[in-house]
């Protein structure tokens, strides 16, 4: 169960990025404000029940990723709070933390632990991970020799072994070839069957309608609507059509 209460998040957008003490002093002396406050999310409130699959839709820059990162505790909101029960695994990007100089086997352990598994759990599931990834022959090869697709498969096979109560996915099911997408879809169905709570942002609007129970519609950081998937998706499509015809 997840309770999201009145979440507001702003970012400071400096005109120039200041990285040093020297630059900070300089801009202080010049007395230029040099930044703008930008609201990525404004007053978002919703409750998510256990086992629900929630989709987040909206145009680019509407705050989808920011909301996912706040639920995953990567970002801290300015106001409001998020109450979650259970273990959260977030996949904002697949394969972060991979080390090119290490072998695929070493990376599997590293990535598994990063995504919240214990070393024991990974050892127990190692054979399964290798089988699923389909790169068994290359597990002792350094990762830098791997193609993008192979890396993705290692990351994905490891990721789906983590056993979270809440799964957060940011547009990652859209990557890879058809075969990979099929595997993603299967894994997704499995998590759904196991009554995991899943929150995902995804650009493919038909897929959202098919996969999700409920949908949250964001526009420029504001919550436009939250409700049954088919209804909200219809609303999103209609509003977009109106906006387009206005142009």
């Amino acid at each position: 169960m997840i309770k999201i209460k009145h979440i507001t998040k702003s970012f400071i957008l400096p005109h120039e990025r200041k990285y040093t003490i020297f630059e900070h002093i300089l801009s202080f002396i010049k007395m230029n404000k040099g930044y703008e406050k930008y609201y990525a999310l404004k007053d978002i409130t919703l409750d998510i029940e256990e086992g629900e699959v929630i989709g987040i839709i909206g145009d680019n820059g509407s705050g989808k990723s920011t909301l996912l990162k706040i639920i995953a505790k990567i970002l801290v909101p300015d106001n409001g709070e998020v109450i979650t029960h259970g273990k959260i695994s977030s996949f904002i990007e697949l394969g972060v933390g991979f080390q090119d100089e290490l072998t695929a086997r070493e990376n599997t352990y590293l990535y598994g632990i990063l995504t919240g598994m214990s070393k024991k759990e990974i050892s127990a599931k190692y054979e399964e991970i290798v089988k699923y990834s389909g790169v068994k022959k290359f597990m002792d090869v350094k990762l830098k020799k791997f193609s993008t697709g192979m890396r993705l498969r290692v990351a994905f096979s490891t990721a789906i072994q983590s056993n979270p109560d809440i799964l957060i996915l940011d547009d990652i099911i859209g990557v890879g070839d058809i075969n990979f997408q099929k595997k993603c879809f299967e894994a997704f169905q499995r998590f759904k069957k196991e009554r995991k709570t899943i929150i995902l942002a995804y650009h493919h609007i038909e897929a959202i309608e098919k996969l999700c129970d409920k949908v949250l519609y964001l526009e420029k950081g504001r919550q436009v609507a939250f409700g049954p998937a088919s209804k909200i998706v219809k609303m999103y499509v209609e509003r977009n059509a109106i906006n387009n015809s206005k142009k």
């Binding site: 990162k69 995953a72 505790k73 990567i74 959260i88 977030s90 904002i92 990007e93 972060v96 933390g97 990063l114 995504t115």
Partner: peptide
Amino acid sequence: VKKELLKSIYF
């Protein structure tokens, strides 16, 4: 070096 980790995983 671990920038991407900080940006996309909670630990």
